[in-house]
Design a protein around this nucleic acid. Structure first.
Lengths: 257, 257
DNA sequence: ACAAAGTGGTCAATTATGTTGTCCACTTTT
DNA sequence: AAAAGTGGACAACATAATTGACCACTTTGT
């Protein structure tokens, strides 16, 4: 505002409007890492702009590492998940089991917040997406495939987080899921392979899911905390059993010669 | 949204952006009926657009009766206060005293709502404007000029309404103030001329003002209701006193011959 | 393995929109 | 009464966006 009540007109260029729209879709998690955008000719039509203008916007987004294009291959959402920790710090963390405990403690609290928000804010579309994931989770459970179940686990938590409609929460937890998925802290199979864990985890996911569907923030928060506490306990017990199995195996090896 | 996640780009023209900004200023009461806009050359500079573009916007606003321009004279905000009632209905109302009672009943309830919102929502700038009006009101009171006080009365209620930050409330009450100001219901001087009324009205206005300044919605609502009830009582008593004065005058006339 | 289809990359010609600058005529202010 | 400020109009120019065409790479289908 100058000295009067009028403000400067924005003069937004068309290409910048396109950039802004695509940015928002990435920020909100509607467009995710690896997603392929429609071809330029089709996308220009959907946006109602000319191809050179769209290309200008894509160039801008590429220069900011939000998109990558391949000549003849298409346009994709770049790997935009930030790295919470540097590589050096990750190496330190991997060598210190206490960091895993701290990580689980952090996630217990933050997942509880996410679940609470999800129960308060999930839209009907959000709930439909969540329902589809839980259905796939139950199907995988019946096939007794811990790896498949573990993969859907991360997808479920990501979906809960999207229901929370807080982009900072979404991206910070996403970075954590990345670390979990690539085994920086511990192998998820360690938890899923634990006897009886698969059934328990499914129950807990259903409890979170039911609370969100019921719109019950307290129940959702409690279910999320209980779930993370169980995962923490499982990890500790599984590590012990692993150690015991290793000792038994060594004993057997010693005795059979 | 078509079949995808992308939406059509708006392609807003500069002139339309200017129109929209001026519309908003009128709607929010920042620009009021009769206000003169800056000259075109100056305004174009403040908005950061060219004069032909500004003129195009003004033409648009003129065609929708939001602005009026006079060649060589300037550009003004048009009379945008709507008429709640048609002329025919106004004539009916003027002939039916009960309508005045209904009007005061309506205002008592709606003014209470406005005062409540004002107490909740008034910004520091709002409060500064309100303080200036109350100061002028007190000055007029000391000058013992009921007409001046009555004029500031409407200004005070309008300012309270602006503090409520609800444009529908603002414009509907404005239409009502218009009817009050032009004597459709009753003469405001009837109320202000009533013995002791001036002091009482000032006290009541201060009570509303103090509650808004204190951010107390309940107190503001109650003060506004009490104020309108008092006005209603005054109007009735003043009408009776008028009738009595007329009778006494007739008696004196009969007895002095 | 090859051809067709789909993709990104580039750019000239054209159209649309906005700006600059100038001049006229009316109204207000000094 | 003159000067200053205002709205009214418009041509020339600049900028932004669209249209249309063609090239080269990649993916898909046969």
């Amino acid at each position: 505002m100058g000295d009067g009540i009028f403000s400067q007109v924005s003069h937004v260029r068309t290409a910048d409007e396109v950039s802004s729209q695509i940015e928002d879709l990435i920020l909100e998690g509607v467009l995710r890492v690896g997603d392929k955008l429609p071809g330029e000719r089709d996308l220009a039509e959907q946006l109602g702009v000319s191809r050179p203008i769209l290309r200008s916007a894509i160039k801008d987004l590429e220069s900011r590492d939000l998109l990558v294009t391949r000549h003849g291959g298409g346009t994709f959402v770049a790997d935009v998940i930030g790295d919470v920790f540097s590589k050096t710090m990750l190496e330190l963390i991997a060598d210190h089991p206490k960091a895993t405990d701290d990580y689980l403690e952090y996630r217990r609290d933050v997942e509880a917040v996410a679940a609470r928000y999800a129960a308060q804010r999930a839209t009907d579309d959000d709930k439909a997406l969540l329902s589809a994931i839980v259905e796939r989770m139950e199907t995988a459970h019946q096939k007794s495939d811990p790896s498949e179940e573990a993969a859907i686990d991360v997808e479920f938590h990501q979906a809960v987080c999207e229901c929370a409609h807080n982009v900072i929460l979404l991206h910070t937890l996403r970075s954590c899921y990345r670390l979990l998925s690539n085994g920086t802290f511990f192998s998820r199979d360690l938890v899923y392979g634990f006897p009886g864990a698969r059934t328990k985890l499914l129950e807990q996911h259903r409890a979170i899911y039911d609370a969100i569907m019921d719109g019950d923030p307290d129940a959702a928060s409690q279910a999320a905390s209980a779930h993370m506490e169980f995962v923490q306990t499982c990890k500790m017990e599984a590590l012990k059993a692993d150690a015991w199995a290793n000792v038994s195996k060594l004993r057997k090896k010693m005795r059979s010669t």
